[in-house]
């Protein structure tokens, strides 16, 4: 399916925006400390972890066209794995948690990816609905399974450590997570910029054409799906440590659709866009929601609707083809790709 929502990340731009964002995030705790808003350092720490989740959603959907509505499933699996290990075996090291999250996320991602993509030409919307249903089922399952705490989830997870250091809430934890976040962001940026990134966009824009160039579309999809699931798992593991609990909602539909919301708002395929979307919804929105708890969700919904209607490329996506180029578009308006499948 060709989407009308197309942003044109060409793999070579966007680096400056990302560098700017990293710069702002690097000094943010200092600014917040000066302003006496130390509490927001903790909020930002959580946002950085969710940022890894946002990046995973953007790589899957934005760059490769895998319309996943179930990123939270892998986030939740990572969170439960790390939460249980931290609680019962004392695994609280953030690096260990990252590795565990990546591992279980990748494992689950490979399984789901094989199920979704091998041997079937399922359409984009089918992937969306199945992953959404999976998130729904996963949350129900976790709610009912006593072994992982059923309704209560996993409370009382000990705080994060780094080697021998116990990480206090505030700047110490922030900068540790920040380092991991920048690492993931850099990796995602390089992946988009690499020749593989070009292949991802080729699969997104016209997967059948890619096959007729000799690419194995299924393999590309499974590889990307596994990578993004691994990143979601890593985010979940870190989130479990930094928030001190895991609940069934970590696996569920609400968080999954949040990821979609960040990506759509910010601009798919741009990396920086979904992070800004997350910032708008989670950081800024969280602040507004404190004094307008009823009005803010309505406003957010209207912003989302407005974005979809009027800025289909997202807040920062380049969505308008300059007039000069439009002529060429209309004269060569050849349909690309097969029909829509579900």
């Amino acid at each position: 399916m060709r989407l009308s929502l197309r942003s044109r990340f060409d793999g070579r731009s966007g680096g400056r925006n990302l560098a700017l964002l990293v710069g702002v995030l690097a000094v943010a705790p200092l600014v917040l400390a000066v302003l006496g808003l130390d509490y927001y350092t903790i909020v930002l720490t959580q946002a950085l972890i969710l940022g890894i989740l946002a990046l995973s959603g953007d790589l899957a959907w934005g760059s490769t066209g895998i319309f996943t509505l179930g990123q939270a499933v892998f986030f939740g699996i990572g969170a439960y794995a790390v939460g249980e290990l931290a609680k019962h075996l004392g695994v609280t090291d953030v690096l260990a948690a990252s590795v565990i999250g990546l591992g279980v996320g990748a494992f689950a991602g490979v399984l789901v990816g094989l199920f979704l993509f091998v041997g079937s030409r399922v359409g984009e919307l089918y992937v969306g609905l199945v992953t959404l249903a999976l998130a729904f089922a996963a949350e129900r399952f976790a709610t009912g399974w006593d072994v992982i705490g059923a309704y209560n989830g996993v409370p009382g997870i000990p705080g994060p450590t780094l080697g021998p250091l116990v990480l206090e809430y505030g700047p110490t934890t922030y900068y540790t997570i920040f380092a991991l976040f920048v690492l993931v962001l850099y990796g995602a940026y390089q992946l988009n910029k690499s020749q593989f990134g070009l292949v991802m966009r080729a699969v997104r824009d016209d997967g059948e054409r890619a096959e007729f160039l000799g690419y194995r579309r299924t393999t590309v999809q499974i590889v990307v799906f596994s990578i993004t699931s691994a990143l979601a798992g890593m985010a979940g593991g870190l989130y479990a440590l930094s928030s001190g609990f895991v609940s069934p909602s970590f696996l569920g539909v609400t968080l999954s659709t949040q990821v979609l919301l960040w990506v759509v708002l910010g601009g798919r395929g741009t990396l920086v866009g979904p992070l800004l979307g997350l910032g708008l919804v989670y950081v800024l929105g969280g602040r507004i929601a404190e004094f307008q708890p009823q009005l803010w969700p309505v406003i957010l919904g209207l912003i989302l609707l407005g974005t979809i209607l009027y800025l289909p490329g997202g807040l920062i996506g380049r969505r308008v083809v300059p007039l000069r180029k439009r002529v060429a578009v209309t004269t060569a308006a050849a349909p690309t790709g097969g029909g829509d499948r579900v």
Binding site: Q195, A202, R209, G214, A334
Partner: peptide, 27 residues
């Protein structure tokens, strides 16, 4: 013509040239 309209001409050719390269080397 089914070329990738949103990629550059050079990238379209690059996609064709490297289509049989191992994915890791592409990454």
């Amino acid at each position: 013509a089914r070329v990738y309209l949103d990629q550059t001409v050079a990238d379209n050719l690059l996609l064709a040239i490297q289509s049989q390269a191992p994915l890791v080397s592409l990454m």
